[in-house]
């Protein structure tokens, strides 16, 4: 299929892009990596639209050290998350998640900001943001605000971004010395959207997990924080944590898996993630 007709404009600065976004008043969208957007244009899933291409805005790319946090620009490609040393040391979940995204030729184009703004519930990076308590830095022509990841994802392909806002960057707290981050997913084939995935972050000491956060993807309209399981883990009861998932999660049934199967897999992944975190934390 060939794309529906589109209008195109290449932004030469962030300010210009934001100005265009505001004046388009909902009739335009940002084109970042385009790895989901162009596919949907080609499939004629999208109506006629106008595209503001921000790919040339290099100031939106890159990873920087901000003291107790790292800042990752919205245009940072998945490939950079895979390979940047600062990501590996400070937010290893992002690197682990990045290699799970599709395939090499997509990761060279796909961007962090694009993935978050698209808000596919089966995507890895939104769940990483929620698990790692990242802030999404949203910017409009006259404002900049930090949105906690937990409140950023509002529904299926819906975010807290206003019509005239774009993601400028995310800020992720640096992992502490005891912190372990684990990303696990189950996909039928390597690179496919996962049927179920989770991001676990916890401070691991011996057998004990503290400050644990568990965000699931592929299990709802948005990344789901498994609060019941988190508090059970905090109490050191893995069985109770798995049992709590039945309350924490309300997964959908679709072509690839039933709700019941997804819930079952969520428990399997939790056990595996905790085992790995403990192993990496030096415990067995």
């Amino acid at each position: 299929m060939k794309a529906t007709r589109v209008g195109y404009w290449r932004a030469d600065s962030v300010e210009a892009a934001l100005g265009a976004l505001r004046s388009a008043a909902g009739s335009a969208q940002l084109l970042a990596g385009g790895q989901s957007l162009v596919a949907s244009l080609n499939l004629r899933l999208a109506d006629e639209t106008n595209l503001i291409d921000i790919n040339g805005l290099t100031e939106l790319e890159g990873v920087s050290d901000e003291g107790d946090r790292i800042r990752v620009g919205a245009l940072t490609r998945h490939r950079t998350l895979e390979t940047a040393p600062l990501v590996a040391s400070s937010a290893p979940a992002l690197a682990e998640a990045a290699v799970l995204i599709a395939h090499a030729a997509i990761r060279t184009r796909g961007t962090l900001g694009g993935s978050l703004a698209y808000a596919d519930p089966a995507a890895e990076l939104p769940a990483c943001m929620v698990a790692l308590e990242a802030d999404i830095v949203a910017r409009s022509a006259d404002d900049r605000r930090r949105i906690p990841a937990e409140s950023f994802f509002e529904g299926l392909f819906q975010t807290a971004l206003a019509e005239d806002e774009m993601i400028e960057a995310v800020e992720v707290p640096k992992a502490g010395p005891l912190e372990r981050q684990v990303v696990l997913e189950l996909a039928r084939r390597s690179g496919d959207y996962a049927m179920v995935g989770l991001v676990l972050r916890a401070d691991v000491e011996g057998h004990a997990l503290a400050r644990s956060r568990i965000a699931y993807f592929g299990l709802g309209a948005v990344p789901v924080l498994a609060r019941g399981a988190m508090s059970a883990l905090e109490a050191g009861d893995l069985d109770a944590a798995v049992a709590a998932l039945a309350q924490d999660l309300d997964p959908p049934s679709d072509l690839h898996a039933s709700a019941e199967y997804r819930l079952h897999l969520a428990g399997v992944l939790l056990r595996r993630a905790v085992a790995r975190a403990r192993a990496e934390g030096g415990s067995t």
């Binding site: 385009g34 090499a104 060279t108 184009r109």
Partner: peptide, 29 residues
């Protein structure tokens, strides 16, 4: 496939491999 899955269109842009069907020509100035 023209939706970025099959990989037949993989080529090199600016030194990196990409899906040719998921890049608009307009972006390649």
């Amino acid at each position: 496939c023209e939706h970025g899955v099959c990989g037949a269109c993989t080529i090199r842009v600016n030194g990196e491999i990409v899906r040719g069907c998921l890049v608009l020509t307009a972006q390649l100035d």
